[in-house]
Structure formats: C-alpha cells, structure tokens
C-alpha cells in the first residue's frame, strides 16, 4: 500500500515536472481550472483525474518500440483507469529522441504509439477509443543533448481527450 501511494506521488511529480512541456501551449484556458483542481479532487474520468491516478508515459530504448516491465506496469494502470471510465477516449502520442533522422523518426514514433495501442487493446480497451499520432523528434519533453534527455524523449504519452 505504501509503495502504491508513493507511485501515485511520483506520477504527480512527473506531471508537475512536465507541466512546462508540450501540453502547456494547448491548454491556454485552463489556468483557473488547474488551480482549482489542485485544491479540490479532480472530477472522476477527467484528464486531470487520469493524470492523478495513472502514469501517462512509457519509455523506450534507442530505436526500439518493445515494452519493458516498467512500461507494462504503467500501461496496466492506464488500462485499469480506462476500463473504469469507458466513455473516455485517448490519444497516444509516439515520440523519438533527436538522435535519428526526421522521417524515420516519424515512422518510429508511430510504431511506438501503435505498440501502446495494441497493448491497451489486448487489455480490453476498445480500439475505437484510441487515436495514435506520431511527433517523431519534433516535440521533445526534456531539453538537452544528453543520455538522460534522450531517454525521457523516447516515449509514448497517453492523453485523455477532453
């Protein structure tokens, strides 16, 4: 129980750390709402609720799209939430690090997003609820040309649609 609690905290921290990332630009009207939801509990089934209860991203090895143990664990958590809220829809973003060519990385991002989609489908999430999009190396989450940044940027991010 303690471990589970910690992992939720870690997920929240991860979300907080990424709040200056790509989602910031998309959510220009949510400033007041975001402030309110940090005081009161997020509405069950909302994107905020998903972020508070599941990890939104999994990481990949260089030029790979297979899911390791930690990715599987994250996706099981996502699947559980998605099955609890069957009216929600998600977009799975696939991303690559900067150490590849642009066009190939678009294909690689799609392959990663698809790996996540396939896994969630196998867990019972209907395919019609899942959209995939590849950003290739165009939308890194972490700045810097170093191993840590690259490991954080080779990722999929599951976004609950509003």
């Amino acid at each position: 129980m303690k471990i589970r609690y910690l992992s939720v905290v870690a997920a929240s921290l991860l979300v907080a750390a990424c709040s200056s990332g790509p989602q910031e630009g998309a959510d220009t009207s949510g400033a007041g709402k975001g402030a309110a939801s940090s005081v009161t509990a997020p509405v069950p089934g909302s994107p905020e609720h998903f972020l508070a209860n599941a990890k939104d991203r999994v990481f990949f090895a260089f030029d790979r799209s297979d899911l390791d143990e930690s990715a599987v664990k994250t996706l099981m958590g996502q699947a559980a939430w998605l099955k609890t809220y069957p009216n929600t829809k998600i977009t799975v973003e696939g991303h690559a690090d900067e150490r590849g060519t642009r066009e190939y990385n678009l294909g690689l991002g799609e392959r990663r997003a698809n790996a996540v989609k396939t896994f969630l489908q196998a867990q019972g999430v209907a395919a019609a609820r899942i959209t995939t999009i590849s950003y290739g190396k165009e939308r890194p989450a972490v700045m810097g040309s170093n191993e840590y940044a690259w490991s954080q940027n080779r990722r999929s991010v599951t976004v609950v649609q509003k």
Binding site: S65, G107, E110, R111, N114, A115, T118, S134
Partner: peptide, 21 residues
C-alpha cells in the same frame, strides 16, 4: 516523406499505419 516524381505527375511518400510505414 513526400517527394515529386521527375515528371511531376506523381508524389511518392510513406504512409504509417499499425506500426509499419
């Protein structure tokens, strides 16, 4: 990854779907 054919009548490109391009 689009590119024109030399005569300009076609565009050649990739389509990604289901994890393959």
């Amino acid at each position: 990854a689009p590119r024109f054919s030399p005569d300009g009548n076609r565009v050649i490109m990739s389509m990604a779907r289901g994890g393959s391009s």
